[in-house]
């Protein structure tokens, strides 16, 4: 499996490949930290590094719009929400109790099996490769949003509005209590 990956890799002499490896290592390492660390605040900050690494991977896939959306929405929005959740619901000072795990062995077995199946499929499938040209993406994404996927786009905007109202309703303090 590792041999296949090494053979599939591009030129090891290319400095850009080493930058890619750095981003990949950052993503993978901080994902392990999210799953394994005992302190939930460390978990949240490791998630920041994971999101940032994934944004870097999008840049290596020539997906400029998605990379920018990743930084804006995930790091600027979702991560801040999660940090608010951590700060509002935990007693931060009891570090060792803030992020308990249960059944780690069973979880590791299931997660490992999932990874093995996904890796097997990824490495053994004969993908029909046809790389697209590395052009700026936002123009074509805009055409697709406003043409083929217009209905889904409008549905997503209604969903966002409903989620906004619902979240505000759920999170506010009830007047009756």
């Amino acid at each position: 499996m590792i041999l296949t990956l090494a053979a599939a890799g591009s030129s090891w002499a290319d400095p850009a490949f080493w930058v890619f490896l750095a981003f990949a290592a950052m993503t993978v390492g901080s994902a392990v930290l999210v799953a394994a660390t005992r302190n939930i605040v460390y978990s949240a900050y490791a998630l920041l590094l994971t999101f940032f690494g994934v944004a870097g991977l999008y840049v290596f896939l020539d997906a400029d719009f998605i990379a920018a959306a990743q930084v804006l929405v995930y790091i600027g929005g979702i991560l801040v929400l999660i940090l608010f959740g951590v700060m509002l619901t935990n007693r931060i000072h009891d570090i060792h109790l803030s992020n308990e795990t249960t059944h780690p062995v069973t979880g590791a077995i299931i997660a490992g099996a999932v990874f093995l199946v996904l890796a097997y499929v990824a490495l053994r499938t004969d993908w029909e490769l046809d790389p697209r040209p590395a052009v700026p993406t936002s123009q074509e994404i805009g055409k697709a949003f406003m043409g083929k996927y217009l209905l889904a786009f409008e549905a997503a905007s209604v969903l966002l509005l409903a989620a906004l109202i619902g979240a505000a309703y759920l999170a506010r303090r009830g007047e009756k209590e």
Binding site: T4, L5, A8, G9, S10, D14, A16, F17, V19, F20, A24, T27, V28, A31, V32, V34, A35, T50, V54, L57, F60, L61, D62, G107, A108, I110, A111, G112, V114, F115, L118, A119, A122, L123, W127, L129, P131, A134
Partner: peptide
């Protein structure tokens, strides 16, 4: 061609998926 092949990205994604499941 991009600097890394498709398999690299699929393997990273599979690993992230496993970490998320765990």
């Amino acid at each position: 061609m991009p600097v890394a092949s498709l398999e690299w990205f699929l393997m990273i994604a599979a690993f992230l998926f496993a970490c998320g499941i765990y």
